[in-house]
């Protein structure tokens, strides 16, 4: 199962990167970025998975604590991904705010129309 999920994560990351590079529409670029982030998050959680593991919550229900300590999955990648998702929302919202302001300026979503930094 973990191989399938890992493959899905890599496929989503590559797809998102392709969208990020090939699209001209600003909102499409942000969508590609969002898919790229999701794929990388899946890969990171899949690395911390232990075969047959249970969630890292040791609440003495079902099995004893000693047995639970032997069979939990790694909590560290999960904590990192938790951080990453929340920051991802902040970054996406910031990029969309920039898009709104850019659109007010030039009335266009095509990235080829923004040549202010080109010379």
């Amino acid at each position: 199962m973990e191989y399938v999920i890992m493959t899905t994560g890599f496929a989503l990351a590559i797809f998102g990167l392709y969208g990020l590079l090939s699209q001209k529409n600003l909102i499409k670029i942000i969508i590609g970025f969002s898919i790229f982030t999701t794929g990388i998050n899946i890969v990171m959680v899949a690395i911390g998975y232990v075969r047959g593991g249970i969630a890292p919550i040791l609440d003495n229900e079902g099995i004893s604590q000693i047995a639970a300590q032997k069979s939990i999955v790694d909590p560290v990648p999960q904590a990192l991904v938790l951080t990453s998702i929340v920051i991802g929302l902040g970054v996406t919202a910031l990029m969309l705010a920039y898009v709104m302001k850019l659109y007010q300026d030039k009335k266009s979503l095509n990235i080829n129309d923004y040549k202010n930094l080109k010379w």
Binding site: Y3, A46, G48, I72, P75
Partner: peptide, 11 residues
Amino acid sequence: YQGSEQLTELG
């Protein structure tokens, strides 16, 4: 990636 059987040292 081989689908680990046990935790890392930190975990």
